[in-house]
Design a binder for these strands. Structure first.
Lengths: 354, 354
DNA sequence: CTGAAAGCGCTTACAG
DNA sequence: CTGAAAGCGCTTACAG
């Protein structure tokens, strides 16, 4: 009897002895049905283990309750990425709660292929994650499909985008380190083409300038990293180690945790005491930062808030809501851990704090 | 003209001045069309930015080219999980390569809801990840849908399952430590109800026994951890620290990296030198294990192989292939890093190696 | 080589 | 309260 993959509404109706229309009404819950008829249909559902086809439903409803998430990123993997993984997890959970499912694609060529794919799938809306080229946005706009951007940048004022307040975060990082007495900073800056890296750097520098770079009270050196990985941070510190030590930097700041950790490991391996000799600070508040020894001081990114709101706002957009804010910024706060010295050590550091 | 969300085949055909059948033939590539007609249709496609509806296609093809992945796990998040995240990443990539997309659900209640959802979505097949109750398997079997299990356990001989050879891995871990001269072992064992934790422990013990536990040459203590997290490893080592040190264990083995790292951090914080005083070893070869200082010696899990094969085999099953192996095991190998001592230190350790 | 027709599995007005 | 009919957007035999 149930030796078939799937039963159709027609079969269901037949078994229950009613019309398809009636059967449809009871399984979908829209429309009337007398108690006895309802009962008969429900029994047939049990018997056949009937599962209504979401694809047939999508066909008539002209919507799928699916959301497309495209991560534009040249490097794989994506799901196990320390930051994007967290955001995707939050998106998954928020989507589930609102009755959506997620189609996840990563697009390495920043092409239009993944967008086309999502369009063909007839997703209800699109979440575009990370840096993407202007032509993608322009392309998406053509199709009048609800969409929003996460953690990307755009000059386009129409685009709804959710971002971390990375510049402020960078400033706070500088403040934290300055307050602890540091005056000489070594900065490892991740790829400048990424919004977050460049803004974090900008904020950090800006705050240093305000503390008196011109007057010579504060000094810093920036080393640029072509990648944002642990390995890259490690490699850079290995290259610059001698210069780093000779110049006597007391603080190391990186525009993300992975770079900071890579660099810090080199210091630790060479016997440099962190934070006693050098304070190290990252950005992202990834899980590892808390697990490391010494645990890494960092700046948090509200991945949970971003992921949750991305889905909620997209849902509003799908519902036809026009008045959603164009830009939503998420606060970044300093998470003090073991890799930066305590305030009491203040006087031991720096060159210009007399 | 293109001020509409989506155009149908009918509109396309109309614009090109052909029938729907003909239009369908050229866009789907099945069937004949004269060059001129083809050209006209293709132009219309351009003009309308026509995207064929995957849902309509799925309706007639009676397949979706979607695969459902259900992770049975009581703890969230899932995607950013150090091991599952990697497997999911591989599944995503392999699926993409074979033309499938993934529906990802995590099922915390080990219920049938997520299965029902996948069935309604009419996925072509199912990948069931992690421990799941027998009733889920039985339920799935009723629907005659292709499926397989990843990293789970079952006595059911029909079920295709892909697993790590965790017992052998456990044995190898014991060998590695024993060869380095260790004779007194402290073991932190993750939740016994998980196949991987219990097998890793079993393998480790088995090998120790063979090295001579009964003769008193080898000793070990097992502490059970109710969770498999970093925090849990940390907490356990904090509780057992004094006893651990007094008893003079020279080797610490945990059934996964997170537990090992949590415990190791406690040791490091209390000034214990790793590996000089205590060697530490984990399991999973997570990314963090390589980043840590000292980098953690561990046992690898072939996440890439498992993820890739899961999709490939499911694809065969979907294609009607019957003769796929029921059990596929993946080798685990010891990855030697900094947290275990080198062979030359051999004589410094152990109590029973004269 | 091309088109008319039927059908995939639902839902939704519209009659009755 | 229930059923017949049309339609969602495609594809696939089947004629011509």
């Amino acid at each position: 009897m149930d030796n078939k993959l799937n039963h159709s509404l027609r079969e269901l109706a037949q078994l229950a002895g009613v019309s398809k229309s009636t059967a449809s009404r009871v399984i979908s819950g829209n429309g009337y049905a007398s108690p006895e008829v309802r009962e008969r249909v429900l029994q047939a559902v049990e018997q056949l283990r009937y599962k209504p086809s979401a694809v047939a439903r999508a066909m008539v409803a002209k919507r799928t309750y699916n959301i497309g998430v495209i991560v534009f990123r040249d490097k794989l993997p994506i799901v196990s990425h320390t930051l994007y993984g967290r955001i995707i997890d939050e998106i998954l959970m928020a989507a589930e709660a609102l009755g959506y499912s997620i189609f996840l694609k990563t697009d390495r060529e920043m092409s239009l292929r993944s967008t086309d794919y999502m369009l063909e799938q007839r997703v209800d809306g699109l979440i575009l994650v990370s840096r993407l080229q202007k032509n993608v946005i322009d392309y998406v706009k053509n199709f009048h499909i609800p969409y929003l951007m996460v953690n990307g940048s755009t000059e386009d004022p129409d685009v709804v985008h959710l971002v971390s307040n990375d510049e402020t975060g960078g400033e706070r990082a500088a403040e934290h380190l300055y307050e602890r007495g540091h005056r000489r900073f070594f900065i490892i800056a991740g790829p400048g083409e990424h919004r977050s890296h460049s803004l974090r750097l900008a904020g950090f520098r800006k705050r240093l300038e305000s503390f008196g770079v011109s007057s010579g009270k504060v000094e810093y050196t920036i080393v640029e990293s072509p990648e944002s990985s642990f390995q890259s941070g490690r490699k850079l510190m290995e290259e610059h180690y001698v210069a780093f030590r000779e110049a006597g930097y007391s603080a190391l700041f990186s525009t993300n945790d992975m770079l900071a950790l890579g660099a810090m490991k080199v210091l630790l391996e060479r016997g440099v005491r962190v934070p006693e000799e050098v304070s190290v600070m990252g950005y992202d508040n990834t899980e590892v930062s808390d697990m490391y020894h010494p645990a890494l001081t960092t700046v948090s990114v509200d991945a949970a808030g971003i992921g949750r709101d991305a889905v909620a706002i997209l849902d509003q957009l799908i519902g036809g809501e026009e008045s959603v804010p164009r830009l939503i910024e998420y606060e970044s706060e300093v998470i003090v851990r073991q890799s930066t010295n305590g305030k009491e050590d203040e006087t031991c550091f720096g060159t210009g704090n007399t």
